[in-house]
C-alpha cells in the first residue's frame, strides 16, 4: 500500500475505497478507524459511535455487503473494498422499503441505533428475503436499542420482507 511519511516521521497511507457507489481516495494514518474516516473525513455522520468497542452496533456499515462494526475496523483494512453507510441506502428522494417500514411502524424513537439497525436488516434481507421473526431478531441482536424494546423494529423488518 502506498504511504507518505511527513517531516515528523508519521506515515500516512493512501486508501482507495468505494463508499455508497462512489470511489474515494483518502489519506489516513494507520491507526485511523473506519468509523472516523467515514465521519470525520467523508462527513458521513449517519454512522454513529455508541460504545467504540463493538458492543452496540451503532457504527454498523456494510463492508462488501456484510454488516461490520466500523469502530473495530482499520481504515487501511478497508482498502479496495466497498462500503455502504446509511446515507447510501436510499438512492433517491424515495426511501428504501426498510426505511419506509421503520417510519411507518414507529420503529424509530431517538434514532441513534436506527442507521445500524437498518443496515443489519438490509444485509439480512439481501441474503434471506423471507426471514422468520427469530432470524430477524438474531440479525439485529448486535444492534442495541434502548428506546423501543425492539418490538416495532422487528415488526418493521418483517413488514419490509417479501414483495
Amino acid at each position: 500500500m502506498e504511504a507518505l511519511t511527513d517531516q515528523d516521521g508519521i506515515k500516512r497511507y493512501l486508501v482507495n475505497i468505494n463508499v455508497n457507489g462512489d470511489p474515494y481516495t483518502v489519506i489516513v494514518k494507520a491507526n485511523t478507524l473506519l468509523v472516523n474516516l467515514l465521519r470525520d473525513q467523508l462527513d458521513l455522520t449517519g454512522t454513529k459511535k455508541g460504545c467504540e468497542l463493538g458492543d452496540c452496533g451503532s457504527c454498523t456499515v456494510l463492508l462488501d455487503g456484510k454488516p461490520v462494526n466500523s469502530c473495530t475496523v482499520l481504515a487501511v483494512e478497508a482498502d479496495g473494498r466497498g462500503i455502504t453507510t446509511i446515507e447510501g441506502v436510499a438512492r433517491s428522494e424515495k426511501l428504501d422499503k426498510i426505511q419506509e417500514s421503520f417510519v411507518n411502524n414507529a420503529a424509530v424513537q431517538c434514532g441513534y441505533c436506527t442507521p445500524g439497525m437498518i443496515l443489519s436488516a438490509k444485509a439480512l434481507l439481501a441474503r434471506n428475503p423471507k426471514p422468520t421473526e427469530q432470524e430477524v431478531r438474531e440479525a439485529i441482536s448486535g444492534n442495541l436499542c434502548r428506546c423501543t424494546g425492539y418490538v416495532n423494529i422487528v415488526k418493521a423488518v418483517l413488514e419490509a420482507t417479501g414483495d
Binding site: G54, G57, T60, L63, K66, P67, V68, N69, T72, V73, S120, E138, A139, S141, G142
Partner: peptide, 9 residues
Amino acid sequence: MANNQIRNV
C-alpha cells in the same frame, strides 16, 4: 459467538 457484526470480521 458475540454478534453478527463481529462474526463477519
